[in-house]
């Protein structure tokens, strides 16, 4: 048993245990911390597998960016919103375990009976070293054969950013709720009755004092759409409340 295998086994065992911790921890913060441990160990395994650049990317993106984001969200979510850990649904749990074990059995059977077909690629350790290391080699591959996918990925990230902005925008129902129960002056058509027969209905003539009186009785706001306005009393109707 070579040292390489020993190190791999240790790192792998820690990663698996940490992953189990993610699933089993009650507190989401603990889950997140276990996830960090798992990711770091996986990154170390990447180094063993001579993927130094990806190891760095793993740590920067996952532990650096995503995990911090997750922790922020955990902070932002109201603790009252978190579900009970010991929920019901035993059937679901049992089924999940059965399926997990079945999949594990299948995958292990596949792994243990596998045979390698196909020829080794050109990037032997010597070749990688010849161009200056893993990062340089990966760069050559990426920017020779994968230029378009990289650009598509850039667009994807942009779209994700915009999507996140849209999702994170403050919601409007509360604003709408504010508008309710108030009198309205609208630039829209009152119940579609305006311009019937091509004639604009004459607004009820208000005495000089009356306008002030009515305005004192109810708040005047601007309706933003005809839908809002339909809930409102029409001109001349008394507010019934």
């Amino acid at each position: 048993m070579s040292a390489e295998v020993l190190v791999f086994d240790i790192l792998g065992a820690i990663a698996v245990l940490a992953a189990a911790g993610v699933v089993l921890a009650r507190n989401p913060v603990h889950s997140a911390l276990a996830l960090v441990v798992s990711f770091v160990n996986v990154a170390a395994i990447y180094v063993i597998l001579r993927a130094e650049f990806l190891a760095a990317a793993q740590i920067i993106v996952y532990t650096g960016a995503i995990l911090v984001l997750v922790l922020f969200v955990i902070m932002l979510v109201d603790p009252d919103n978190l579900p009970e850990f010991h929920g019901g649904r035993p059937v679901q749990r049992l089924l999940a375990l059965i399926l997990g074990l079945a999949l594990l059995g299948e995958v292990m059977a596949a792994i243990l009976t596998r045979t390698i077909v196909g020829q080794p690629g050109p990037w032997s350790p010597q070749a990688v070293a010849a161009v200056g290391g893993n990062t340089q080699a990966l760069g050559r591959v990426l920017y020779s054969g994968y230029v378009l996918p990289i650009q598509v990925t850039a667009v994807l990230l942009l779209a994700a950013t915009i999507g996140a902005l849209v999702l994170a925008r403050p919601d409007t129902p509360r604003v709408r709720a504010l508008v309710r129960d108030t009198a309205t002056i609208s630039l829209a058509h009152p119940r579609g009755s305006e311009m019937a027969n091509g004639v604009e209905p004459a607004l009820p003539a208000l005495a000089a004092g009356q306008l002030k009186l009515e305005a004192g009785e109810r708040t005047l706001v601007m309706a933003k759409s005809g839908d809002d306005f339909l809930d409102q009393p029409v001109w001349g109707e008394r507010h019934q409340s």
Partner: peptide, 27 residues
């Protein structure tokens, strides 16, 4: 195992997609 960098390239794209997924998912 195969002395190829295609797998690493895939992994890189997966990391990018995971980042995008994280942003949207958390949103």
């Amino acid at each position: 195992e195969q002395h190829s960098l295609v797998g690493q390239t895939f992994a890189l794209f997966i990391i990018a997609v995971a980042a995008a997924e994280a942003v949207v998912g958390l949103g």
